Amino acid sequence: MPREAPRARIIIIEVNEADSVADVVRELGFSEVPRNYFYGGVNNMGDQYNANGQVGAMGPNAQAHNATFAQVWASQSGSIDLPALASELELLRAAMRREAITPDHDLAVGYVAQAQVEAEGGNGPGALEFLKKAGQWALGLAKQIGVHVAALAISHAIAT
């Protein structure tokens, strides 16, 4: 007859300094008193992720595609007037077309056009999504020509 392997029981409990491990184990209803103790803390077992804002994806192999970050809009919607933004984006887009030299500039003009369409349609999160893609050149030109609502929106979008 094969010999039976000894049983092992692992119990993880948290005790106050005033409690003894044996007392807590008895309170839990175990008949055996533990023979071996390990005192210490477990800081972290495995991966740990902390986020203090909106997250589209987090952790190993996490992916987010074509995400709209409505939380960002919720925090900025009080300071951005969509009809005014749409109007200023039209002015910015015209200025950008005059100044565009590189293919990246042309892409930024397109992103501002898409943001304008989203703003005209009342889609603040969509407008911010495209303004983020428009980038620093659009922000600099918005400040230069004095379209302050557009500059504020681009600035908020880039910061997220």
Results as ranks from 00 to 15, higher is better:
151 A>K: 00
118 E>R: 10
140 G>Q: 11
138 A>I: 05
128 L>M: 14
150 A>W: 03
136 Q>L: 14
141 L>A: 07
140 G>A: 12
127 A>F: 03
151 A>S: 08
116 Q>C: 01
149 V>N: 12
121 G>I: 08
130 F>E: 13
129 E>P: 00
119 A>V: 01
140 G>K: 05
124 G>Q: 02
119 A>N: 00
112 V>C: 06
145 I>N: 04
113 A>N: 01
119 A>I: 02
111 Y>F: 14
141 L>K: 06
139 L>Q: 11
113 A>I: 06
114 Q>H: 13
151 A>L: 04
127 A>V: 10
110 G>N: 11
125 P>G: 04
144 Q>N: 13
133 K>A: 11
131 L>N: 02
125 P>A: 11
110 G>K: 11
138 A>D: 02
133 K>Q: 15
112 V>R: 02
121 G>A: 15
117 V>H: 05
123 N>K: 15
125 P>R: 06
139 L>Y: 08
136 Q>R: 15
110 G>L: 12
148 H>P: 03
146 G>Y: 15
149 V>L: 04
134 A>E: 00
134 A>C: 08
144 Q>E: 14
131 L>Y: 03
149 V>S: 10
135 G>I: 02
135 G>N: 04
130 F>N: 15
138 A>P: 00
134 A>G: 09
143 K>V: 11
123 N>V: 11
145 I>Q: 08
135 G>V: 09
113 A>E: 12
113 A>F: 01
114 Q>T: 13
135 G>A: 05
125 P>T: 05
139 L>P: 02
134 A>V: 09
129 E>H: 14
133 K>T: 03
147 V>L: 12
137 W>G: 15
139 L>E: 06
139 L>H: 06
136 Q>V: 15
140 G>N: 15
150 A>V: 02
119 A>M: 05
148 H>I: 13
119 A>W: 00
150 A>Q: 05
149 V>I: 13
136 Q>N: 15
134 A>P: 01
145 I>Y: 07
115 A>G: 06
133 K>H: 12
122 G>K: 08
122 G>E: 05
143 K>I: 09
